[in-house]
Design a protein around this nucleic acid. Structure first.
Lengths: 141, 141
DNA sequence: TATTGTTATACTCTATAACTATA
DNA sequence: TATAGTTATAGAGTATAACAATA
């Protein structure tokens, strides 16, 4: 998804601000992934491996098919960023583990994704609190 | 589905709220596209055709390669949602035009994308103004 | 020479269906 | 029977490179 937050006359409406903000976020996220030669999908898996876990758990959380996870994990594994271990409790399952190399790559991704830090830096403590609260409310939290 | 997704825990920090909000927005956007049998990329092109325009202009705005646009437009054209016209002023260029059917499909997409309307409905007038303003500031506007 | 757009190619994401091994 | 994961397959997005036609 992509957009131009063009300086439209007075596109000062909330829907437009939402669109532009999400677009900026998504672009920054993808750029950070690309900086580590990763796709967004690969990052989505990599960052969810702070603890070892099974594929079906990942598929559920990411809202995609299990066969999808198989392929993404296979690519991450071929690059040495994760590895598969047999589950000690379930003979069918495999646990995905992020390797030390994967840890370093994730850390570099985090460092490259400056967007959230920029947002934080541009707002006062009170504004940050306000924004956090408004976003929760906007989502129906 | 896209693997761009969300998570389960609920930390009250701004970075986390940003991530969750963008994830919710992206998922809703994709669902609206899917409801019209469109990909997100196809929607991105379709909604930018309120006026006829060339491919390179679209490629620049969307931040992708021109060959990419060629393919997306070809798929939209094969479904009758857009058509290509020769440019009257530049023999190399083609102008992309959204057809009447494309107009209707875009309108149905807009109707299906309820996210922004939901956000609006959940906030008071003052909160909407606050959020709009905070998002602009957060982006460095 | 530079630009507009296309074609060919290759890789990735994604879902569906069929399959295995295990529960 | 149901679940965890894989394989095969196919459609779509994406970029790069090479190309044609025009500016």
């Amino acid at each position: 998804m992509t957009v131009t937050s063009a300086a439209a006359t007075h596109a000062d409406t909330l829907p437009r601000a939402l669109y532009d903000f999400v677009d900026a976020y998504d672009r920054a996220y993808e750029a950070a992934a690309t900086s580590q030669q990763l796709s967004v999908a690969q990052v989505c898996v990599l960052i969810r491996l702070d603890e070892k876990r099974g594929m079906s758990s990942l598929a559920t959380e990411l809202g995609c098919d299990a066969s999808n996870i198989t392929q993404i994990v296979a690519r991450l594994e071929s690059r040495g960023l994760v590895r598969r271990e047999p589950s000690p409790t379930d003979g069918r399952a495999r646990l995905i583990v992020r390797t030390a190399d994967g840890d370093r790559t994730k850390a570099r991704f985090d460092a490259a994704f400056e967007f959230a830090r920029d947002v934080t830096a541009r707002l006062s403590a009170q504004e940050r609190e306000q924004l956090t609260s408004l976003l929760h409310k906007a989502m129906g939290a």
